[in-house]
């Protein structure tokens, strides 16, 4: 009856393909989604000057860290702590950077006990130029830190150029951070 009439109307047939089309579109997005990193929250501080802060040194170690220390040359700021397991994984890379004098690395010692931090540095080595002891974690919040380790690249004007979340691996250095350092030193801009 009325159903039969509808069947003879070919214009309606494409409607049957709508569910399939929707499923395929969602499937496409899910495929793209596999290569995205939803847990990494991009920093809103990229391109902005580093937050205003002035942190004391870890008691027993010279040189604290403040905003003004970060202008004048390109540098890395590494957020680390002795209680952070994955910090150990990236630590040899920073030791290497320091030994080869490639780029200065500053430390932000995040919510750490000073003796534990000093012992940790004694045990695994101390690659840092300056270290600010952020006991309350408040400066960390100003930097938008939400997981340790995190590493920031700061240009000569003291602006944050990029943020690496999680332990830095050799390929992150080779493909991302060090080329950016080089570009900044040449007076260019960098993105990563």
């Amino acid at each position: 009856m009325s159903e039969q009439i509808e069947e003879q109307n070919p214009q309606r047939r494409w409607l049957r393909l709508v569910p399939l089309a929707i499923a395929l579109v969602i499937g496409g997005f899910l495929f793209v989604g596999l290569s995205l990193k939803p847990k990494e929250i991009p920093s809103v501080l990229i391109g902005k000057a580093v937050p205003q802060f002035d942190l004391p040194a870890i008691p027993g170690r010279p040189k604290g860290l403040k905003s003004a220390d970060l202008s004048g040359e390109v540098s890395l700021v590494n957020v680390f702590a002795s209680w952070c397991v994955s910090c150990r994984a990236e630590h040899p890379l920073f030791m290497n950077l320091q030994a080869r004098n490639i780029v200065p690395v500053h430390g932000l010692n995040y919510k750490d006990e000073s003796t534990a931090a000093l012992n940790w540095l004694r045990r695994y080595g101390d690659p840092y130029d300056r270290i600010g002891a952020d006991l309350k974690g408040r400066v960390g919040i100003d930097w938008g830190v939400y997981g340790v380790p995190e590493t920031f690249l700061v240009n000569a004007e003291g602006r944050i150029v990029c943020k690496h979340i999680g332990p830095v691996r050799q390929e992150d250095l080779d493909e991302k951070l060090l080329p950016a350092v080089e570009a900044l030193r040449q007076g260019g801009t960098a993105q990563c």
Partner: peptide
């Protein structure tokens, strides 16, 4: 407790 500070400040 994978990457949580032991230092409870407040």
């Amino acid at each position: 407790g994978l990457s949580e500070p032991a230092l409870a400040v407040a």
